[in-house]
Nucleic acid binder design. Structure first.
Lengths: 178, 178
DNA sequence: AGATGACATGTATGAACTTACATGTCAATT
DNA sequence: AATTGACATGTAAGTTCATACATGTCATCT
């Protein structure tokens, strides 16, 4: 369901596109929030045609197929956004790692935290680059989906960094003095 | 893989338990970070027996089966925690909603944000109650997994709340004055 | 004695997801 | 002329996950 909504959102905001285009757009925009590869996207588009949410144009060069959102499709995203009861369920491998951290003893836990910190920093860097791109494109007049989600992502990632720092300090405080 | 690690973590920190016990423990502890119901847990335990990560004792009353972690199993969680390259991939429906928010016009977006805010507040309340329980149990001497993950969860949830507030303010500022 | 509800374990079905396999076009470089 | 790499679409196999179905035990309350 979510994949379908994400695709409709992209088609709605940036107009007709091929499965290939959408796969790329996914990577460059929604990716930090939802992941999907072409092997998931192509079949989903086919189903969406059957369900009348998008239409597919004639094959272009290299077998390219262009999908256009229908009125039905537009209604579907709007319905999802306005009528769905939001759920706050999260599933995060790094949070699981945080959960299990007490299984390790002090030095090991610190090492694990250090590795987590690197990963978080890498993510933050990626998000900030994405944001820079967004701003550049916003200056040229194009509207953008994902502006708010980027803010959220950056805020969340910074929070994770703060947590890692505080947790490391806590672990050090509990370790026997050398 | 993650489910398996989570189960091993629980077995490692609180000793032998049945599938039923583990299902309950999941609900009350790991749940805010990783979700699994009994229909996923029972088959996974069976596979873990085959793989030598846990052993199963004789059936007790009401067909109860008690699982105990093996040396292999302990090694497996530790390996996961210390050797895995942490990935920061997240998949969140509410972040997707944030992503698509610009598809709605001002008033609708504000309404959607209000609904999101309620959901976030509910989650925060749940986490804080969990934390209170944890503290009570910590006072009675039992050690706990998940202390750090709870901190992280609470911090993340508060950040989400801040984001919602800021985003609402931003939307209001962009709306034509009434 | 019967009902209720917590205890306890499973299976089945279908959707969603990941990873790998498979095929072919077109443009630019070597 | 051959190779490389981006463009472009698909399928297959296996795993994970959610929801529902299915069964039976034991203690307590009425």
């Amino acid at each position: 369901m979510s994949l379908r909504i994400a695709l409709l959102g992209l088609l709605s905001s940036s107009g007709p596109a091929s499965g290939y285009d959408l796969t790329k757009k996914f990577e460059r925009s929604i990716n930090h929030v939802w992941q999907a590869g072409h092997s998931q996207i192509y079949p989903e588009l086919a189903k969406m045609v059957i369900d009348g949410l998008v239409t597919v144009g004639a094959e272009g060069a290299r077998g390219r197929k262009t999908y256009t959102i229908t009125r039905e499709g537009t209604a579907e995203v709007r319905r999802w956004l306005t009528e769905r009861t939001p759920t706050e369920a999260t599933r995060s491998e790094s949070a699981l790692e945080a959960f299990l951290l007490p299984l390790l003893d002090g030095p090991e836990a610190l090492a694990a935290l250090a590795r987590m910190t690197s990963a978080i920093e890498a993510k933050l860097k990626g998000l900030e680059e994405l944001q820079a791109t967004h701003r550049r494109e916003a200056a040229t007049g194009r509207t953008h989906l994902g502006h708010y989600a980027l803010n959220l992502g950056i805020m969340q990632t910074k929070t994770a960094l703060t947590w890692a720092k505080e947790t490391a300090a806590d672990l050090e405080a509990r370790m026997p003095p050398t």
